[in-house]
Design a protein around this nucleic acid. Sequence first.
DNA 1: AATCAGCCCAACCGCACGCCC
DNA 2: GGGGCGTGCGGTTGGGCTGAT
Length: 460
Amino acid sequence: MSFNVFQGQEGSTLLLGNRFIDDSVSLPFAIGEIKVKSDHMMGRSPCCSKHSVNRGAWTAVEDSLLRKYIETHGEGGWRSLPKKAGLQRCGKSCRLRWLNYLRPNIKHGNISADEEELIIRMHGLLGNRWSLIAGRVPGRTDNEIKNYWNTHLGKKVAALKGDDTKTHKNVVQNSPTLACNMNSSDDMPSSSISKLKKTNMDRSRSSAFVIPNVHNLKYIDTSNRFSSLQGTVHVMDGGKSLHCNPKAIGPSLQGNSPMDDKIDSNPVKANLISTELHSTVSLVKLHDVEPHASDVLENDDNLYLSNTVSEDDELFLDTDCSMEESPEILNLLKHHNNVNTEDGSNITPASTPDDHMLDQMNGKNIIQEQRSQILDVLNFFEVGEAEKEVCCNIHEWGQDRHYLKGSSSRLMDDRLIQWPDDHEDMQLQGGNGFGIASPHLDYAGLTDGATWEASVWYEE
DNA sequence: AATCAGCCCAACCGCACGCCC
DNA sequence: GGGGCGTGCGGTTGGGCTGAT
């Protein structure tokens, strides 16, 4: 039976609900008795006339018409699109067909093990928020992920975890300490566990907590300035856009800041900041980026941008640096033999200071521990596979520490955007050109030289 | 070969939300 | 403030497919 007909067309069949009824079907009622449920009666006008549109599977011809129209005129205006494109379809149907099937870069075919793993983790955090999950799985649509979950993963996870998995989200959210202690693998799907074991970091800091969009993982070390913020890790959800501009978040911020003198008076501390900011930036730089900051502004609501870009942005870990010049960088290299550079390659230090030397330089203090912890986090993300690896234990990091939460009307989730009142004055810039968080940063205007936004994504 | 049941997934649905007037 | 519109979202539907009987 062909469904490519619609009522009103010559020789057409009758549309009844979701069904096309052709002449061969005997109806248990007279045609005149058919009452079509009216959306209008529910207080809303229908998006289209259900009597004059094709329904059901799309034909190749329809696909072609829709694709050509959108390629020429762009997306949007779905309600008027069908008529303009010569389609006998509802605008919503057109939109859905485009978004779920015709849109470029849509992946078709089986979902890989890595994708599956990511979906499981994301679902653990977000629950049935399919569009959010889809935003973290490149090339997959919310509809596809939803279907895949309902037909495969839901059962799979349920089989692994028993009935509790039906409330998987709650398991994670309500168990802050463990959500995912990786030492206790009971709460994790086996596939995730195997993935986590690949890393060489402290398992106790791993978790099933999912941080969306690792592109925007940031660390802002305020440990030397604000004791109450020691060791904080700041992760910002990057919103829908998977692209960010390294220029825009580059560390080279020149300018006058109330904190400049403090940094200048303590070069070691300044280096600490620069090192970690550099490592963060290099993380971001591994990914495709938009070439212009303006693009980022348009495409990524959650970015925190620098209005100052200099050649220093091109400098990341200086492989030629001496210990005198940058002991912190060497320290970083010591802890992480594979440090990613901006071009995606790895560098390994020719030599690194030994523990004794580091202790002498820094004092055997928590700074090293903090840095190690943070870099463990970065390392954990396995930068090269950042799209896939999005777990960390925010709760573990949070112990005895404070998190900064970004403040911006442009953030999409209020849960992210609470700055502690007592840190409102945190605004500084490095004398060596490294900016750090400004809770009052005007995203839109970009008139503030301070550029670093600190946020934590977490579920209440 | 025919029938049935279960599964898969594209498509549809109603509702929610933001924007604009 | 409220209504209309456009869009996005999660839940649901049902045709097609496949394997079992």
